[in-house]
Amino acid sequence: MIEVCNVTGGYKKHKPTVKSVAFTVEKGSFCTLLGPNGSGKTTLIRLMMGVLPLTAGEIKLEQKSISSYSATQLAQKIAVMTQENQIGLEFTVREIVALGRYPFQTKRFLNSESPYDKEVIERVMKRTDVWRYRHHSFNALSGGEKQRVLLAKSLAQEPEYLLLDEPTNHLDVKHAMELLHLLKELQREENLTIVAILHDLNIAALFADDAILLKDGEVYARGIEEIFSDQQTLQHVYGVDLHVLYHPGVHKRQLAYVPRKKRRYYKLFPTYIRS
């Protein structure tokens, strides 16, 4: 269980990005963080990682403050996949994934992979469909392929908790759906607890068990049912016209976005449109 207890913090102490945020992520659940750009989602993930300092509140992992864990202890429980997928040095795909075993290796400055480390590395690479790229340069891969490699690296930590910052970034629809299906399988089969920032609200509604909707650094609404049944709340938070409807194939709510009427653009580009 992850407990976020009235957390305030961010990059500037005098101007926090996240303010008095409180929620609980149950063990074995898939919780998504929702909200427009600038709402505090990535900052919150970084506070949960312990990368950014808290100015108030506390974050607990299994009823213990994350500050009481060493960096190695935390890495043996929580894996993180961020949006950044640029690696300055030339590493092979396998070398990148192998970094996930680092918290479990005692001789960290030597090539100390155990037979079990090698087994885990191969298993997660095959499961994420990157084993075929194991000898390729990471920097030579496409954006979507890099995302899958970084997921494999996170899974190589054999985490109990997985924090994901926009995991479907750079992925087309097919690969985004495959990645989310894989995450759901891992959640069910290994009781993996997942906290993921998702920008695609329809994908979030299909795959997540719980949701936190952020606006201006604060929790605006909580719960899949509560959020996706409230059309006015979504319109207010995201600033777009939309309709809530049911998916034709599964009993899940989905959103249909309504484009602005053409007449509104005359005020923005009067010369261009009339010419």
Rank of each mutant, 00 (worst) to 15 (best):
H175Q: 13
I78W: 01
L201G: 15
R108P: 00
V237W: 03
V124A: 08
Y133C: 13
A256T: 11
R148I: 03
L162C: 04
L89W: 04
T72R: 11
M1Q: 14
L192I: 04
V244G: 00
R274H: 13
M49P: 00
A205L: 03
L151Q: 09
E166R: 07
A208H: 10
D210A: 08
E185L: 12
G217S: 07
R127K: 15
I212R: 13
H236F: 09
N191V: 10
L47G: 02
F228K: 07
A140Y: 08
Q147G: 07
S275G: 14
V93F: 03
V258R: 15
G100Q: 07
L213F: 09
Y246P: 00
L255W: 07
Q157S: 12
P16V: 09
R148C: 11
Y246M: 11
T72K: 11
L47I: 06
E189A: 15
V237Y: 03
K12S: 12
E225M: 02
S229Y: 05
D117L: 08
N37C: 09
H247I: 04
R127A: 06
V21A: 10
A204W: 08
K126D: 06
F91S: 10
A196G: 14
K13Q: 14
K12P: 00
R188C: 09
K13W: 06
L201E: 14
V51C: 00
K15H: 14
